[in-house]
Computed example of a mutant assay.
Amino acid sequence: MSVRQKRIDPAAVEGDFYHIKDLLTDEERKTLDRVREFMVNEVQPIANDLWIRAESPLQLREEIRALNITGTYADDPSVAPRSYLLTGLIGMEMSRVDPSFATFFGVHGGLGMGSIRECGSPEQKERWLPQMVRWEKIGAFALTEPLVGSGTSRGLTTTARREGGTWVLDGEKKWIGNATFADLVVVWARDEADEQVKGFVVEKGAPGFSADKLEDKISLRGVQNAHIVLDHVRVPEENRLQNANGFRDTARVLKVTRGGVAWSATGCSIGAYEAARAYAVEREQFGRPIGGFQLIQDLISRMLGNITASQAMVARMAALHEQGELNEAQAALAKMFCTSRMRETVAWAREVLGGNGILLEHNVARFFADAEALYSYEGTREMNSLIVGRAATGLSAFV
């Protein structure tokens, strides 16, 4: 074996330069290995095809259920308890292979189930969450509107009006992942009576509810985003999330899922890095692999630096969450930082491949495009920076 071969660190090849995965217990590592095997064997072979056809991997529902990683032990005793670190690394592992799959999974298990878990009554949790754990019902989360994105806390235009034992919802939502096929859509609307944002679970087939797939996306094409119209949709009081009585309750859900996006962004960076590194050691120019040229090695080291810094941040975020100390600003900083570093990393990966970087066959192009959606959703960089800035100065810069 040559000296050069002896110096290759498998963890560096996989983008885990500081061995973050060594923080897991042996049992947790086995779970993560099962997820990796599933992603490599089941998702990776179809990822580009699903991206081209703009389809979600609904055919894998049974296989996903068998992984036993959807939801929490509190949702259903059949779910094995997981640390926040393992949960984050699972999201990272998914995004490392296919950010669209990670988002499809996260919308259901994070935003949809998370809304019910955080804001539902005990009866509502028992009614819906076990079915969602088993993927018998798929969830979606409808907050963003055609004309209201970052300003949802104050500018939500979808309305809810109570009429006896039912609520009437009117309005529109946009960019709602999974909504074209979801069985349960958590719709956030402003109560006309007290002007507070409340959450409602709209079940599939409700009269007046329509969800049309958004066409011609250039990012996360494997996620079915929808434009929703609510035209006098009647929702029974028992479908109103009983502990969602203001936007602060919505923000509790977003705090957790913003952290999840930070993990996914880190995974997207790793996927792009791994594809670029593999290409660099195989592609030859001027009689030698391009990975042996200084400028390529500079890009490789920059990518590893971004990935490692992001991993360190999200691992610490997971520890704070485990201790019950994670706050909104810390989650916002992780989302802001990791998605910004991701954007740099996927661009450098595309640069390593030159013209081949825009071809799906080398995978980098998919990570490059998908990064744009991860960068924008769950709060733009600018909005998250204002959350962090408010925490740092004690002064709000929100309009």
Rank of each mutant, 00 (worst) to 15 (best):
T166L: 01
A66K: 15
Y84P: 10
R65L: 09
R134D: 11
C119W: 06
L156V: 02
D170M: 02
D98K: 09
Y73H: 13
R96A: 07
W128Y: 15
Q131Y: 11
D170I: 01
P122Q: 09
E172T: 00
P81L: 13
F104L: 09
I176F: 04
V97H: 06
G165W: 05
L169I: 09
I138V: 15
R117S: 06
L111C: 09
E136K: 15
L156T: 01
G164T: 00
F105V: 12
R96W: 12
D183R: 09
H108M: 10
V79H: 08
Y84C: 08
P122E: 07
G88C: 09
N68A: 08
T144L: 00
G114T: 11
R82G: 04
G71I: 15
F105Q: 05
G164Y: 00
R161S: 00
L147S: 01
D98L: 10
M92P: 08
L67C: 14
E126H: 08
L169R: 03
A102H: 08
G91Q: 12
Y84M: 07
A160V: 04
C119V: 13
S115M: 13
T152F: 02
E126I: 10
S153I: 15
E163N: 05
E172D: 03
S121R: 09
T70D: 05
R190M: 11
A179T: 03
V168G: 00
W135T: 09
L156D: 02
L89H: 06
F101V: 12
F141W: 12
S153Y: 13
T70F: 05
G109E: 10
G177N: 07
W128F: 14
L85P: 03
F101I: 15
L129M: 10
I69S: 07
G139K: 08
T166Y: 01
P122V: 12
R65V: 15
L184K: 05
T180S: 07
V97M: 07
V133H: 06
T166C: 02
G109N: 11
M92Q: 14
E136F: 11
M113R: 06
D183K: 13
E93D: 05
I138A: 04
E118K: 14
A189K: 01
E126N: 09
R82Y: 07
T180W: 04
L169H: 07
I176T: 12
G149K: 00
L67P: 10
V186D: 04
V185Q: 04
S153G: 08
V107Q: 10
I69V: 15
D170N: 03
K137L: 15
R127P: 05
M132G: 07
K173Q: 00
G155P: 00
T157G: 01
S78I: 14
W135Q: 08
Q124P: 07
G91D: 11
R96K: 12
A74W: 11
E163G: 02
R127T: 11
L129A: 06
L67W: 15
V107C: 07
R134Y: 08
T152E: 02
R127E: 12
M94Y: 12
L67F: 12
